[in-house]
Amino acid sequence: MSLQQSDIEKVAHLARLGIDPADMPEHIKNLSSILDLVDQMNAVDTESVMPMAHPVDTAQRLRPDEVTETDQREQFQAIAPQVEAGLYLVPKVME
C-alpha cells in the first residue's frame, strides 16, 4: 500500500513526533514497504478466530489498595530537564 505525505504528517502529529522534511521521502518509501509486508495478513480468513492479546492466558492480578511506594520526588526530579519548587516546568499552556 502506498502512503502519501499527508498520511505520514497525520501519523507523526498523532505521535507528537517531529519529522525533518528532508527525511519525508525516505519515511514514505519505508512505511509503504512495511505496510506491504503487513498486508500479507489479509490473505488469511480470521472471521472465527479469537484475538490473542497476551501470550499467557491469565487473569490480571489484583493487589490490595494500599500505599506501597514511598515519596521519592526529589530523587525523580533530580533527573528532570526543568523543575521548580517540586513542579515540572513546561512552556505556558494558557495565556
Binding site: V38, M41, N42, V44, T46, V49, M50, P51, M52, A53
Partner: peptide, 8 residues
C-alpha cells in the same frame, strides 16, 4: 487482525 493471527 494481527492479534487473531497471533492466535493461529
Amino acid at each position: 487482525k494481527a492479534q487473531k493471527i497471533r492466535r493461529l
